[in-house]
Design a protein around this nucleic acid. Structure first.
Lengths: 275, 275
DNA sequence: CTGGCCGATTAACCTATGTTGTAGCCGCCT
DNA sequence: AGGCGGCTACAACATAGGTTAATCGGCCAG
């Protein structure tokens, strides 16, 4: 709402990345805002290259990333590795911890990361007392799946150049939502090895591919800063269609389905059950 | 439970594939069973090769597959296509229709398919009145994501032979849950083109790969019937680790989180706010 | 200052997989 | 009966991307 600084943004309690992200989906009430900030109360800092979660490990708390980057990845017994997705500020880890016994993937930090965590039991509470907020979190989780499916399309059917372009545009879009990208540039705290693992390529080939993108003037790289000179064109190279990011606001039927029609108090907005 | 026939299994109302699948995760009460069968009341048959959902289309009802196979796939503007997952009896389509405006993928039947459908609004009702059932459905959805992530690992880091072996074992495991596979054989109503699109390979190469699997005696193909002679060995070729299928029963904390602690009776709903 | 390590970069070479084209089979329509 | 379309099968050839190996620069510990 107010113009945003690019600072880690945790001055005012309510503008955490998660809040920003959810707000892009639906307008949150003050109650909801407050409850959300409750969830982000217990905060810890994790050093770079440390595991937030390990494949096979039992799930523990739910974690909210407040600052920094991480990767979600899976490994084969012989060491080959696939990065499933990048975990950015505003993303949630272990949302399914209530449903699954143990994790089928690892999450490892790339930079120093600030995480909030809360016990899984609160999810039940959330669904009961703040159904719209719960719906927004479900949206965030469903979007995650959509991103993985899109990456699958990339690995299966896009060439190395297309994949790489696609990923860059995706990151740009995602980071914009949490005010971490401006005019097409952002910090990409990632080695080429990690890019390779994300795109199913060899490290040498990712290097070649980045070179081609640079040579064609589509992007610039200075250290960890990447600049996209012409987003439209890069998107077209990557056949990027942002439909899968589901960035549009919640459909009207969401209110019908998830509005809290049980507590006339607290939730404060209407009820009027249907059918 | 009782010994199972391989018949479509819809004689007794409660043993639908979805019920079977969810029961493998948690024991459902009679109320829950009943409500589930309510959801499967409106039934329609779809011919083979027809769309249940089209990329870009607005979401409509939630659909439960009761019989037959379909694929969930995404296409690039130039026609290249990736099959994201196979949709089997007991699977659900459009679970996120409340959250998203329009679909980012298509679903197309491979065989004749029997689908039940219900309006998205009932999901809210479900979460309020039958939280354990809702949790089981959430489990099913989360598992879906896990499968896509595992396929991503396949496309990114497994060879054609490994991928193919992996997929076959996965299908075998999934079909077993709904009693559609016995002693390592099942019906695979799929052309090689579709396998190719699922595994990110060319149709010619999938053909070569199946040949290798047959020549090595790991599988047999007779028309659409596939027989896995040695599951252990095939799983080992595909580096298959079923952790990602999350086939184990619900963790204990699920009950703590989702048990309906609001209604001592059955359908009643109400409250006791938190904090 | 210096050695060691990590990551980026490039060249040369190799191979898994893609492409193109042909043939055979089977079921189905007329 | 003939022919057509969809699918499998395979051979021959082409290439995107993998592998290996060498170099270079930056950073840090001693």
């Amino acid at each position: 709402m107010t113009t945003m600084t690019r600072v880690p943004a945790s001055r005012q309690p309510e503008t955490t990345p998660l809040w920003l992200k959810l707000s892009s989906y639906l307008v949150l009430s003050d109650d909801e805002k407050l409850y959300l900030s409750e969830l982000e109360k217990t905060i810890v800092k994790q050093p770079p290259r440390s595991d937030l979660l390990q494949q096979g490990e039992r799930y523990r708390d739910v974690r909210i990333i407040r600052d920094g980057w991480a990767i979600r990845h899976k490994a084969l017994p012989d060491g080959r590795r696939q990065v499933v997705n990048f975990v950015l500020p505003g993303d949630i880890i272990g949302m399914y911890c209530t449903l699954f016994e143990s994790a089928d993937h690892s999450v490892t930090t790339l930079t120093q990361v600030e995480v909030a965590s809360f016990p899984p039991e609160r999810i039940g509470e959330l669904f009961r007392s703040f159904p719209r907020l719960a719906a927004a979190l479900a949206w965030s989780g469903a979007r995650e799946e959509a991103m993985v499916a899109e990456r699958l399309l990339s690995l299966g059917r896009r060439t190395a150049l297309e994949r790489t372009a696609h990923l860059i545009v995706e990151l740009l879009r995602r980071l914009s939502v949490v005010n971490m990208a401006a005019d097409g540039h952002f910090v990409l705290p990632v080695t080429q090895e990690i890019l390779a693992d994300a795109l199913g390529l060899s490290i040498v080939h990712i290097n070649r591919t980045l070179r081609r993108l640079r040579d064609s003037g589509l992007i610039e790289l200075n250290g960890q800063r990447i600049t996209v000179n012409d987003v439209r064109q890069l998107a077209s190279v990557g056949q990027f269609d942002e439909l899968y990011l589901h960035l549009i606001r919640a459909p009207r039927r969401l209110e019908r389905t998830f509005s809290d029609n049980r507590s006339p108090r607290s939730g404060g907005r209407d009820e009027q059950a249907k059918a």
